[in-house]
Design a binder for these strands. Structure first.
Lengths: 113, 113
DNA sequence: TTATCATATGAACAAACATTCATATGAAAA
DNA sequence: TTTTCATATGAATGTTTGTTCATATGATAA
């Protein structure tokens, strides 16, 4: 027997409050999107303005290909969307949730004493 | 010349609003901690209660070693702390910021239509 | 002291990931 | 239609990361 009965009992109530695995996976998936400095920079750049891919490349200082790959990831997970104007695609945040998260996280950082 | 002058001009103002690279790296680092389902499960488990390592293992259904490795990461990044009671270590969240983030992220998910 | 229990840690390995390079698509201009 | 421009994508590669296995540490009980 690996663990005492006592601490197994107390686990029941904790386990009940715990989000389901499925939910935890989803959450981790979302956080993972913000867990890369290129992507988070892209998201901040799009926070207030629509931008084409070339502009995003300039801003993040990365090659067009690298940026496009990251844009694809952000698109597939519905964090960003685009509207096509001629040959160029104007990217923007998909909804206000994303900018809320960015806003909060930036505030969180500046609070650190 | 890769990009038109027009969109380079408009970049200036966007670039000024952009957090510094250093800040973006820090942010990505923090998000990365939440970007793994084992770690996020551990954090949720500790949200309301102090738990020893054995209990955490039971809850997340992972081996002691795997859990200890993740605890180390969370400790080093100051998301959790512990108090030692005899041989056992009682882990808990380091501060309320962490549970705030968990709370918000869970709410965010349940909002999704 | 020695044995035992709870936890930690180093090394190894596989899986996931970000970037690059080369090339493809697809829209507009020539 | 051919060329050019903006963006996308597949394959290859190096790096990072999570888990496992084996072992270490460090506290208590015997």
């Amino acid at each position: 027997m690996k663990h005492s009965q006592k601490h197994i009992d107390s686990l029941k109530s904790v386990r009940e409050k715990l989000p389901k695995d499925e939910v935890l996976f989803e959450l981790a998936d979302i956080f993972r999107l913000f867990a890369d400095s290129t992507r988070i920079k892209i998201l901040f750049a799009l926070k207030d303005e629509e931008l084409c891919v070339g502009a995003i490349c300039e801003l993040v200082g990365m090659e067009q290909s690298a940026v496009s790959h990251q844009l694809k990831i952000l698109r597939e997970k519905c964090l960003i969307k685009f509207s096509q104007v001629g040959k160029t695609r104007l990217y923007s945040l998909a909804d206000s949730h994303v900018s809320d998260i960015l806003q909060m996280s930036a505030e969180h950082l500046s609070e650190e004493a």
